[in-house]
């Protein structure tokens, strides 16, 4: 494949990463959102592999493989199991204001583009344009944690923020040092496992799925608030 084809392929994959973020935010059910997250992880891994191929950075192949294993297979599988265990697979959580959320998400994308403009102007890397996309993915993950009250969905938002950070590192500076990357990867792993244990414990107790109910003591009734 010629360099130009790979370049345009990277751009397309980056745009699809952004689309996966939008899908995660707007899906009502958890399982499709987890699938979108898995696809996002796989896309980020492929982008990393392609950047490794064009920039001749063999270390990035390792990162790509790690990303694929962790974020496209392992963490989605863990979350999947969690959702099935908590019997949330058929649970739907309608967004309060679906259109408003999407408009807000688009505004965040434009904001991150505007924010990144000066950096893009000074950078020489051929993948510098992806920086805005990765910042947008981070902000969209944050937005997802704000608008969704489902605990598992908030974890998804957190994980997809990490996807965005990783994409930014890969596209702007040809990847982080391997030690840092391994550290972050295992942090995310541990976070996923901890979230899993935490939710399972809480789930035994009863009403967990809605985070909005967690800021209320058991003793208080609905009328007391």
């Amino acid at each position: 494949m010629s360099g130009e084809v790979i370049q345009s392929l990277i751009l397309i994959l980056a745009a699809l990463v952004l689309f996966a973020s939008f899908v995660q935010i707007s899906r009502e059910r958890l399982l499709p959102a987890i699938h979108a997250f898995a696809w996002q992880g796989a896309l980020v891994a492929v982008v990393t592999g392609l950047i490794a191929a064009t920039g001749h950075v063999p270390g990035l192949y390792f990162s790509a493989a790690l990303t694929f294993l962790l974020k496209a297979l392992l963490i989605p599988w863990l979350l999947h199991r969690l959702v099935r265990h908590l019997k949330l697979a058929r649970h739907r959580e309608p967004l309060g204001h679906p259109i408003l959320t999407v408009v807000l998400a688009v505004a965040l994308v434009i904001f991150s583009y505007w924010l990144v403009l000066p950096i893009v102007a000074h950078s020489l890397s051929s993948t510098r344009n992806i920086l805005a996309i990765s910042l947008a993915v981070v902000l969209l993950g944050l937005l997802m944690m704000v608008v969704r009250s489902q605990a598992v969905a908030q974890v998804l938002g957190f994980m997809s923020m990490e996807n965005g950070l990783f994409l930014a590192a890969v596209s702007a500076t040809q990847g982080m040092p391997l030690v840092v990357e391994l550290g972050v990867a295992f942090d995310v792993m541990v976070a996923a496992v901890l979230f899993g244990v935490f939710f399972l414990e809480l789930g035994e107790g009863g009403e967990l799925h809605n985070v909005d109910r967690l800021n209320r003591l058991d003793e208080t009734r609905d009328g007391d608030l």
Partner: peptide, 22 residues
Amino acid sequence: LSLAFLLALIGLLSHVILESGG
């Protein structure tokens, strides 16, 4: 249809973000 609109909007944004500076 809002999916269609969203797709078109992302297309427009990705044109601005990814292709114009290229």
